[in-house]
Every structure is written in structure tokens, then in C-alpha cells.
């Protein structure tokens, strides 16, 4: 029984990890006032970067750095489109996801001459968990995700950049009046968003799995947005929301053992996301200047 519960908890943690990274990425962007529906694409590019660099160098650590850089560059493209070229943020976000899918699929085919899946690569360092007979491993990125929550909280609350970021998301004109450029602040916010999503992508491809698949993100970027809304754009609450969704997913998985069709738990996170959106939309308040200049 302990083993089952431990398995559930670890499963929930692993399920929540990519959501936490992506949701924190969305938080950085949206608290600065930029709508970000491109989290899915940022993660996909990160996941691909991780596998590619690991494949070339043989080092998953280099792969992690590759993931972060790839996703950050992609995020800066998004920033340029939204902040300088004034593309519609919703349209640009959706389309960036499709562009990411196109680029990754194109490169997978060219590099490994197969479609959809990359060959297996070495995984990132894992922490072994032993408790009695129970043996499991969790990726190093799982605790990193929780550290990231604290770091993001600290940056937002305690640093000059965080203060400027929050002001940019609430009232950019107040920021301009003090001599700080909201555009610059938002560029850095999207850079953070890219870095965090890159970590999330790396977790999927070299932390949880050991290969890249073109469908590896599977809507997680959008589930993360729902978690962000449920967490009222606050780091700790958002992470809690991610854990809840991760746990529900794991619990659903466990139910398949009791004759519930597999499809039901596969649908669960998406259904849950819709419910979360409907229930929490009333009680939360988005950043006032979200999507505005």
C-alpha cells in the first residue's frame, strides 16, 4: 500500500513538473502584460534542443543548456513579433506553436531521416528513491521545478526587475512615467519565459523520456495556462494547481487498473482543465494590462 501511495505521489510530481515549468514561464510573460499561448511551442523547441544537443555531444547536461538556449531564442522571436511588430498576441501565440511543430518535424526528418521520433539518447541525471522494497527514480529536474517556483517568487517580490515586471503588467504608463521602458522589461520577461519552458521541454525529452517525439508536449502548454489562471497568476498557487492536475492525472491512471477504460484517464487532464477554467475564471483577476501596450 505504501508503495502504491509513494508511486502515486512520485507520479504526480513527475506529471506536475513540466506543467510547473511551463506555467511559471507563462506567469513571467503574463505578469509583464504579454499574453502567452505559445508555451506549448516554447516547450517543444526546448525538448527538441535537449535531444539534439545530447545526441551530438553525448552529454545530457549540455542538452539541458541547449534546451534552454533553443527555447529562449524562440521566445525572443515571439517577443519581437508581439512587442516590435505588434502582431496580435493570441494569433501569434497559436501560430508559434504550429511553427515550432513544423520546424521540429522538419529537422527530425532531416537529421535522423525518420519521421516523428528521434533515436534514444542518454537521460539526464536522476535521483534514486528507495523506501523498503520500493525503488524508483525521479529526474533531477523535478526538485529543480520546485526551486524554480521559489526563485520566480523571489524575483517577482524582491528584485528591481520583478517590481518593474509587475508594474509593466498592471500599468505600463506608470512605469514609463518613472523612466523605465516597459518594452525592455517585457523582452526580459519573455526571455525568462523561454528559459523556463526550455527546462520544461528538457524534462519531457531527456528527463522523463529519453527521446524526442513530435507530439511530446501534447497540449501541456495549454493545461499550464489553465493552471496559471487557477493559481491567479501567483507562483506558489500556480504550482499548487499544477500539482493538483498532475495528481488527478496519476489517480486516473491508477483507476485503469480497476476496469476504467484507458481513454477516460487520457481525457481527464483536458476535461479537468475546462472545469478549472470555468470554476476559477470568476474568482481570479488577470494582470490589468494583459495584452495591452
Amino acid at each position: 500500500m505504501t508503495a502504491v501511495i509513494l508511486g502515486l505521489i512520485l507520479g504526480a510530481l513527475a506529471g506536475a513538473t513540466p506543467l510547473i515549468f511551463a506555467a511559471l514561464g507563462g506567469l513571467c510573460s503574463e505578469r509583464a502584460g504579454v499574453i502567452n499561448l505559445a508555451l506549448e511551442g516554447f516547450m517543444l523547441v526546448g525538448a527538441f534542443g535537449a535531444v539534439l544537443v545530447t545526441y551530438v555531444t553525448g552529454s545530457p547536461l549540455a542538452g539541458l543548456i541547449g534546451a534552454v538556449i533553443a527555447a529562449a531564442v524562440f521566445a525572443l522571436v515571439y517577443a519581437f513579433l508581439c512587442l516590435d511588430l505588434r502582431a496580435d498576441q493570441i494569433v501569434a501565440g497559436i501560430v508559434m506553436n504550429l511553427l515550432a511543430a513544423g520546424i521540429c518535424a522538419f529537422l527530425v526528418k532531416r537529421i535522423w531521416n525518420i519521421s516523428q521520433n528521434s533515436p534514444p539518447v542518454e537521460k539526464l541525471f536522476s535521483i534514486p528513491i528507495a523506501f523498503g522494497d520500493f525503488r524508483r527514480e525521479i529526474s533531477i529536474l523535478v526538485p529543480v521545478a520546485f526551486v524554480a517556483v521559489i526563485v520566480v517568487w523571489f524575483i517577482l517580490r524582491r528584485t528591481v526587475f520583478g517590481l518593474n515586471l509587475r508594474a509593466a503588467g498592471e500599468d505600463p504608463s506608470a512605469l514609463v512615467a518613472t523612466g523605465v521602458s516597459p518594452r525592455r522589461v517585457r523582452y526580459f520577461a519573455l526571455l525568462c519565459s523561454g528559459i523556463l519552458c526550455g527546462l520544461g521541454g528538457a524534462f519531457l525529452s531527456i528527463g522523463y523520456l529519453n527521446q524526442f517525439m513530435t507530439t511530446i508536449t501534447h497540449g501541456r502548454g495549454f493545461i499550464a495556462i489553465a493552471a496559471l489562471i487557477m493559481g491567479n497568476w501567483r507562483p506558489v498557487r500556480t504550482a499548487a494547481a499544477c500539482l493538483l492536475i498532475g495528481a488527478a492525472y496519476e489517480a486516473g491512471y491508477a483507476l485503469t487498473g480497476f476496469g476504467v477504460p484507458e481513454e477516460v484517464w487520457r481525457m481527464l487532464p483536458y476535461v479537468l482543465t475546462i472545469v478549472v477554467l470555468c470554476v476559477f475564471n470568476i474568482a481570479v483577476r488577470p494582470p490589468r494590462a494583459l495584452g495591452r501596450f
Binding site: 513579433l81 501569434a92 504550429l98 513544423g102 520546424i103 518535424a105 522538419f106
Partner: peptide, 16 residues
């Protein structure tokens, strides 16, 4: 998928 890249770049440049 090259054509997906072209298509989406087209949309992004138009929305810019």
C-alpha cells in the same frame, strides 16, 4: 513539414 514552416511564417508576417 517544410511547407508548415512556410505557411506559419506567412501567417506570422501577415499578423505583424
Amino acid at each position: 513539414d517544410l511547407t508548415l514552416i512556410i505557411t506559419m511564417t506567412l501567417v506570422l508576417t501577415i499578423s505583424a
